[in-house]
Amino acid sequence: MSEISDTYRTVVVGTDGSESSLRAVARAGALAGACSATLVIACAYLPVEPDDREIGRAQDVLRDDAYQILGSHPAEDTVRTAAERAGAAGARKVKTIAVEGSPVEALLDVVRREDADLLVVGNRGLAGIKGRLLGSVPADATRRSECDVLVVHTTG
């Protein structure tokens, strides 16, 4: 275990508040706690535009797969809830960040800014035509990350 504790000093995990993403947060919290690492919990959000009907239509089509959060206040609530889950799993040093932007870009930006050693993502992606059109957060983040990536199996 000493090799792992020497390797990971800063762990970043993304959440959208879904139960699936909170499972990844818990796993990241347990790992960060075991490594005495700082856990950075990030949530991406889009700014709320009063007349932005396109986002509403996209959410209607995607339903449960509409993982993008609208507005900074819901994102801040999401990371607070995730921090509680991470603490219960063993994380001792937790930092929360709500980041404007798309999920993958926001996560990779946080990884760079925090000089993270590890990015943790859940395996829940978008299946079928939705995934081909919009891409998968876990797959895109894994492919583009410059640090180690742990993909947590969060779905049955």
Score class of each variant (00 low, 15 high):
49 E>A: 11
26 A>P: 07
45 Y>V: 06
97 I>C: 11
39 L>Y: 02
53 R>V: 07
36 S>M: 08
102 S>T: 15
75 A>M: 03
45 Y>N: 02
122 G>S: 08
145 S>K: 06
58 A>F: 03
100 E>D: 15
32 A>Y: 04
64 D>R: 11
97 I>E: 07
73 H>K: 09
44 A>I: 10
91 A>R: 07
84 E>W: 05
129 I>R: 02
112 R>D: 15
116 A>V: 09
21 S>W: 00
45 Y>R: 03
65 D>R: 00
69 I>L: 12
68 Q>F: 11
154 T>G: 08
74 P>F: 05
121 V>R: 03
132 R>L: 15
36 S>Y: 06
87 G>Q: 14
103 P>G: 12
76 E>T: 01
149 V>R: 03
48 V>I: 13
137 V>M: 15
50 P>K: 01
41 I>L: 09
115 D>C: 11
112 R>G: 06
61 V>W: 13
128 G>T: 04
55 I>F: 13
147 C>W: 02
51 D>G: 04
24 A>N: 00
150 L>Y: 02
113 R>N: 11
89 A>L: 09
122 G>E: 00
52 D>H: 04
137 V>K: 12
101 G>Q: 01
51 D>V: 05
140 D>T: 12
46 L>C: 10
68 Q>A: 11
96 T>C: 08
127 A>Q: 14
124 R>D: 02
142 T>H: 12
113 R>A: 05
146 E>Y: 00
94 V>D: 04
71 G>W: 15
100 E>L: 05
36 S>G: 04
42 A>D: 07
123 N>W: 07
95 K>S: 00
69 I>A: 02
139 A>M: 12
29 G>S: 07
120 V>W: 01
80 R>Y: 02
39 L>T: 05
76 E>G: 06
102 S>Y: 12
115 D>W: 08
97 I>D: 01
50 P>I: 03
138 P>V: 15
124 R>K: 10
134 L>M: 15
146 E>R: 01
93 K>I: 08
80 R>F: 00
78 T>V: 06
133 L>S: 07
117 D>L: 04
33 G>H: 09
71 G>L: 14
146 E>V: 01
136 S>L: 13
127 A>T: 15
52 D>A: 06
139 A>W: 08
117 D>K: 08
141 A>S: 04
53 R>S: 13
119 L>E: 10
133 L>Q: 12
133 L>A: 12
54 E>S: 08
39 L>A: 06
27 R>A: 02
25 V>G: 00
109 D>Q: 02
94 V>N: 06
73 H>M: 03
42 A>C: 11
130 K>F: 04
123 N>D: 15
150 L>V: 06
83 A>L: 05
144 R>P: 10
101 G>P: 04
34 A>C: 01
104 V>E: 14
38 T>C: 01
